[in-house]
Design a protein around this nucleic acid. Structure first.
Lengths: 213, 213
DNA sequence: TTTATATCGAGAAAATTGTATCGATAAAAT
DNA sequence: ATTTTATCGATACAATTTTCTCGATATAAA
């Protein structure tokens, strides 16, 4: 088992889940082997690009056959860190927070939201999708005791930095941010922004261009 | 007024909303002018990159002063098509659909979700954030009459393609997809995927790397 | 008034990412 | 058994994106 300190591009990393979804769908349909060409066709990608992406996961295929779907799924999951569940805390039990708590598929992707926090006393004590909403003040203690590595930020922009500081202070190593705010984090902590507005920007800009014609 | 058929990179398009959020925050604080250097510092970007991004919107700055925040906001919004509201239909009144319906800020970004649709008879007729859930069968007729350009797909993966086909048939020009499924669309229709799993993949892969150390 | 400094704008250079080519190989067809 | 075809894996090439460099300009300081 070789553990390479590979340099993976963000682009590759973002394509891998697409392949994974497709592979799972195809496996449900009984497909056993799949070629890069097929995958590429599905997404309108270049076959070589797909091959390179798969290469980074360490998967090997055979000529004329392609890759074994089952092996590929395992390899991609391993590579993404989706083979071992990561426990996560979520802060902000608003709409976005609720949607995330209700998103069943996260488990498949190795993410396990074990508790939700909110500073609003009215929300504290309620249950959302079978997880109790706890007071924010309890986060630091619990995060340490439960060895939580991932913190999900689903609060309004103005509170986001405060929540992040609390999380980082509690030893959380990775922040998944849904708030539209630039966040400051110390060296060594991972920050990933999941911003809908970025995606929306691409959509509306393209639409505007098309409509102008 | 010059209407340039500019070639904008996706990357630039995705950074623009970040600048916009920051600008709005700074304007609230009374800031009138801002330099690319300042913006760059906030996000850890290269100042030149910020300057180039802003250039694509047609904004012009002055040496030693920077850009007028108010002008910049207008320019970015214009460029992204966020100055005129686009009406949108949403299909899928599940968790993700509800979260999107409850996301007040979309209005600020020129997106106005005017109706929600679902095929589940139990959901039809209920109201979510002040919008009635309508039967899916009514979508084509209504979309045409109301000149809807944007369709938001928030259904499980297996129904996504069917919903998209319905939308496209109803004259919808742009699809914002939240389902983890590859979608087929005809030439001329815009497809933008807003997939959380991609963002999650980047996060967990990085976290795995850090934890292995 | 003169000098220093911050910033823009434009173009060149570097880095990254994506695409094309080609030999090797394994299965299928002849 | 031989030829054909699909595919992998590696490498070279092209395009795109980011970063660097530099002259021009507007304000502030001396």
């Amino acid at each position: 088992m070789i553990s390479q300190p590979r340099v993976v591009s963000r682009s590759t990393l973002k394509r891998l889940p697409l392949y994974l979804h497709l592979l799972e769908k195809l496996m449900d349909q009984g497909v056993e082997n799949i070629s890069c060409t097929q995958i590429a066709q599905e997404f309108d990608f270049d076959p070589t690009q797909v091959r390179k992406d798969l290469e980074t996961t360490g998967a090997v295929g055979t000529a004329r056959i392609g890759f074994r779907a089952a092996t590929l799924v395992v390899k991609i999951k391993e590579f993404l860190g989706w083979d071992n569940a990561h426990d996560a805390f979520l802060v902000g039990a608003g709409n976005m927070g609720k949607a995330l708590l209700g998103y069943k598929d996260f488990e498949k992707y190795g993410l396990n939201i074990v508790a939700a926090f909110d500073k609003d006393a009215r929300k504290v004590g309620t249950r959302i999708f079978n997880r109790e909403v706890l007071p924010l003040a309890k986060l630091p203690n619990l995060a340490g005791r439960m060895h939580i590595n991932i913190g999900i930020v689903a609060v309004p922009a103005e509170y986001a930095q405060g929540v992040v500081d609390l999380m980082v202070g509690a030893g959380i190593r990775a922040i998944w941010n849904f708030a539209p705010a630039p966040l400051r984090i110390p060296e060594g902590v991972i920050l990933e922004n999941a911003r809908l507005t970025q995606s929306l920007a691409v959509l509306t800009n393209n639409l505007t261009k098309v409509l102008r014609k």
